[in-house]
Design a protein around this nucleic acid. Structure first.
Lengths: 166, 166
DNA sequence: AATTTATGTCAGTCATGTTGACATATTTTT
DNA sequence: AAAAATATGTCAACATGACTGACATAAATT
């Protein structure tokens, strides 16, 4: 008999499970947890006409005021054209301002305004609350284990980036 | 003096940090960890002309073979129009096939083909390896704490969905 | 003076999501 | 049997946030 066409290939009726040597439990938990983790700020941002991209910029500008465009690109791992549009909207809306670099005048240092600081805090609050509640019955050692795990999930060469934050 | 225009508002030079009552450490760890967690399959998918959306469908079809379109929509929380395009590509490429529901003939049960099963496993392997390595020095109790934490991060009403998986 | 660097900008494309409207087949209800 | 509800599919238009490639400008470095 000739090879079956793709369309008529037989359906596989058995489910993939952890016996296949893959940690599906944690893969799925990570997916669902992250989805809901981002859902609170996503809803708030919609009221401003902003998206997740604005949130990320606003977050890091607040966490590292004065960082340059190049540094921000490095943290976010996106292209400058991609950053430009979203950053411009944040500047026009008065959440972020650019200041010419004092040493190197080609650089543009990015700072939050009072308005941008407030929004960043508003967006972070529900995420922090979700984390706090998720840790409510956890021991301090549990929190440490979770931090170690999350950090170990990051590519080794990018871990210095994390340590650069306050 | 009149109120400043948005463009000339003063830059805030102090960094947001954990003293502000927000758990920035875990917020950022979660962001970076998830970004890198998805990067391995993202690169592989590019070779097929597929994206993250294809991955999610393929994953759940392999984890719950025979699930219906409606069930898949419920898991993914996207619209049917959004699902349709991506699902069609997976069907045309021979990774997924539809079978008319035996009880209710309006339903379309979704199954992976051998090809789809292989791809799902290939995509899951680097993610599982990353998790395994991140847990290498963790105690079994640490893993339990991490699982509890991730599950607690999911909206309570959606947790049954997780328990539905093998 | 020439080159490199940091940033900005224009133009086009792609992937993935959205809403709204409508079509079809099948099942359930009346 | 007829009507209503349900599961799915499909068409069209649109938004967001990524991408590539090309080019412009100002400032710093060589």
């Amino acid at each position: 008999m000739a090879e079956r066409s793709a369309a008529s290939a037989k359906p596989i009726r058995t489910a993939l499970n952890d016996d296949d040597g893959i940690d599906f439990a944690l893969i799925e938990l990570f997916f669902f947890a992250y989805r809901d983790f981002t859902s609170d700020p996503d809803e708030m941002l919609a009221d401003y006409g902003f998206g997740r991209a604005h949130h990320r910029i606003l977050h890091f500008v607040n966490r590292r005021p004065g960082l340059t465009v190049a540094e921000l690109l490095d943290v976010l791992k996106i292209t400058k054209q991609s950053l430009a549009r979203v950053l411009k909207q944040l500047i026009d809306a008065g959440h972020v301002i650019q200041v010419q670099g004092p040493r190197d005048r080609r650089q543009r240092e990015l700072y939050p305004t009072a308005k941008g600081r407030t929004l960043a805090l508003d967006l972070a609050r529900p995420q922090s609350r979700r984390i706090r509640e998720a840790l409510r019955e956890a021991a301090p050692s549990d929190r440490e284990a979770i931090e170690r795990f999350l950090k170990a999930m990051v590519n080794p060469e990018l871990r210095p980036q994390i340590d650069n934050l306050p």
